[in-house]
Nucleic acid binder design. Sequence first.
DNA 1: CCAAAAGTGTTGAAATTACACCCATGG
DNA 2: CCATGGGTGTAATTTCAACACTTTTGG
Lengths: 218, 218
Amino acid sequence: MKLKNKDVWALPGGFVRKDKDVDDEAKAVLQERTGLTDIFLHQFHSFGSVSRQDPKHASDLVEMGVIDPTMEEWFKQRYVSIGYYALVEYSKVKLPIPDATSDYCSWVPINDLPKLVIDHESIIGKAHQTLKKELNYQPIGFNLLPELFTMPELQALYETLLQSKLDRRNFRRKMLAYGILIDTNQKREGVGHKAPILYRFDLEKYFSAIKDGFSSGW
Amino acid sequence: MKLKNKDVWALPGGFVRKDKDVDDEAKAVLQERTGLTDIFLHQFHSFGSVSRQDPKHASDLVEMGVIDPTMEEWFKQRYVSIGYYALVEYSKVKLPIPDATSDYCSWVPINDLPKLVIDHESIIGKAHQTLKKELNYQPIGFNLLPELFTMPELQALYETLLQSKLDRRNFRRKMLAYGILIDTNQKREGVGHKAPILYRFDLEKYFSAIKDGFSSGW
DNA sequence: CCAAAAGTGTTGAAATTACACCCATGG
DNA sequence: CCATGGGTGTAATTTCAACACTTTTGG
């Protein structure tokens, strides 16, 4: 989200109320910004260095009338942020909703990040790194793809997440070996080339794979 | 740590002061309980469910004189715990030091846990699960083993952490392939069988492997 | 010489990589 | 008919799993 009156961006976030689960508060932030529920949301790390404060930001907020002046000192404290990453199908939320501190909110490509407050860039780095590792243990794609999707679409998703190209044939083999895809015997039509097969996730196997994880290593 | 006047145990922990890095506070807890510094300490998850409170515990603390009665309410709040696990060579700290709330402090085998407060058992579970996954990405053993150690000792460490038996020959091959071990051309003597080779870690490679991680998966 | 545990090597299976051809579709 | 991208197969390589015999040492 681009902060008001500043050429600096920030990750969406919020405070954890005393009587709420932290996980639920994360869900709420996601829901407020995107309107989406029931999506993949994963805690990956907490950030609690003393350098995580930007006193200037607090005074800006007062100036903008976003917070009450009596709260300025409180806002100048160091926060501990518990990082969560969500996987959201971009096209489902073209325009995420900004909060009171920001002008607007939009999707930003990970390899072309704007200037970010405090340590938010390193938070994104950690999230991305964690996600890449998790791909070795868990399937991904449900609610990032339409109900029916093609193998190349799934591959494109992986390539986006991993930021690297994968071999078509090997990707297909590996993915099918996971046993979480169902061939619907349908094809995607209207493309200017051979019609690709439409798959859907075998949700039972998909979620049991998320729960148990793919074997790997020791 | 066994809590005073109770047959219930708790993980060591503490509060994060406002002017301290969370990581440093974790280090401090470790240092206070074990006297050790410079050891592997890794944040793995934060726990923030609203059920994480035990009002009874707060009143017990008042009764025991550990905290001031005026603080009782404050202690009844829900805490968010940021979990860290450390890898400590057990023999270096035979008797960890209890804090004011506990009678004594000791090492407990993971498969024979006593009754633990609130969600501490699930915290241990999560830590163990995380550790097992990390073994696929990182070498482990430095400051868990003496400077010189044998392959079977390293294997025993892995088997302890993974809670499973590994094949001697395959373990050796895999470990040597990581390229983080140096054959010192010495043997451990005084054992009633063939003298095992003493290795030490190639620290430069060891730490670069921790930093970059072993390849795995995608 | 014997018990105990360490060192070592091989083989088959499985997974991974690299790579090339044919096929269906829309224009 | 052609451009585009999807489907498929295979061979070479690497990794992994399973497994047994020989060696060294102290007692």
